[in-house]
Design a binder for these strands. Structure first.
Length: 300
DNA sequence: GACCCGTGGCA
DNA sequence: TTGCCAAGGGT
């Protein structure tokens, strides 16, 4: 039995019940789930995904609202640039693809916020095509089971895709199932910390396990700080703007962080990224992108 | 390839 | 308590 076979067998008995896996889920719904799942845990994505799909069932629905609404709906999922790109993606789908999600890999890749992983995930899970789909889970599982390494090193896209391609069954539907099975395995059994090897279908064949499951050696990747970074300051500023019902005076932003230089840099970054817009030329009021106050009809 | 981009939960 | 980590993408 191949690795893919045993992974699929395990998946059939142990897969989580996730709403975007329900047969018949639209490609748009799959795409939204994939973008939300970029660096955000399933447990936090699930309610947000339901709310999002309920409000914007199709790309056209989202494209009709301003980016600010997408940023607000994004809530505290983190990396709000993803919300903005998902909105831009909806606009692109309307403009270039008649409001539908394309099934072509290159067309998917050309969409805002859609990279190597997400394009392949949509083509595979929404359209049943045969592509290697490699995320952090797959890289870890393959790294351990096949290469015998405790952890995958830095992502090397081409090599990762090649490695996974060799494990895929020929039949597309079964290849897709193998990919989701590897991902699920990495998510709930072959975890980064304290893997549950006794529950793993690869227990008897895993190269890492067979070599005694050595701990990772040498320096791992450098830790990601958060406290005190620009990211924290950006988060605090955006938090204020998300809850605002109108233009926010600079004074209300000034109070979220004491360091003038860092605060100004963070705000400028948000503007550069297109998440925030200065409302006036002297930049003393701010809004979320596209969130302009009503104007006097006489001026229109 | 290195670095930047949020947020929260858990060991 | 705090470091680690979570279905990446863009520059």
């Amino acid at each position: 039995m191949t690795l893919a076979d045993s992974a699929i067998q395990w998946y059939d008995r142990n897969a989580r019940d996730l709403p975007w896996r329900v047969p018949g889920t639209s490609a748009w719904a799959v795409l939204v789930s994939e973008v939300m799942l970029q660096q955000t845990p399933v447990i936090r994505v699930e309610p947000a995904w339901h709310a999002w799909m309920n409000r914007w069932p199709t790309p056209a629905d989202l494209a009709q609202d301003p980016p600010s609404e997408a940023i607000r709906m994004w809530g505290r999922l983190g990396y709000p640039r993803r919300a903005m790109r998902l909105h831009a993606c909806a606009v692109a789908l309307v403009e270039r693809h008649d409001g539908r999600v394309p099934d072509d890999l290159d067309q998917l890749l050309a969409l805002p916020g859609v990279g190597t992983y997400t394009a392949r995930a949509v083509a595979t899970f929404a359209y049943g095509q045969r592509h290697p789909v490699v995320d952090t889970n797959v890289r870890r599982v393959v790294s351990r089971a096949v290469a015998g390494d405790p952890d995958a090193g830095p992502a090397t896209t081409a090599a990762d895709l090649t490695a996974m391609a060799e494990l895929l069954p020929e039949e597309p539907a079964r290849a897709a199932r193998a990919s989701i099975a590897f991902m699920e395995l990495g998510a709930i059994v072959c975890t980064a910390r304290s893997p549950r090897c006794t529950e793993c279908p690869f227990e008897q064949v895993c190269a890492w396990r067979l070599s005694g499951a050595p701990a990772p050696s040498g320096p791992t990747r450098r830790p990601q700080r958060y406290a005190g970074t620009d990211r924290q300051v950006r988060g605090l500023i955006l938090e204020v703007l998300r809850h605002a019902t109108g233009p926010v005076p600079r004074q209300r932003i000034d109070v979220v962080w004491a360091d003038d230089v860092q605060r100004a840099r963070a705000l400028a970054g948000l503007v550069t990224d297109g998440l925030v817009e200065p409302l006036d030329s002297d930049a003393d009021r701010f809004v979320l992108a596209g969130d302009h106050p009503p104007r006097y009809p006489a001026l229109e």
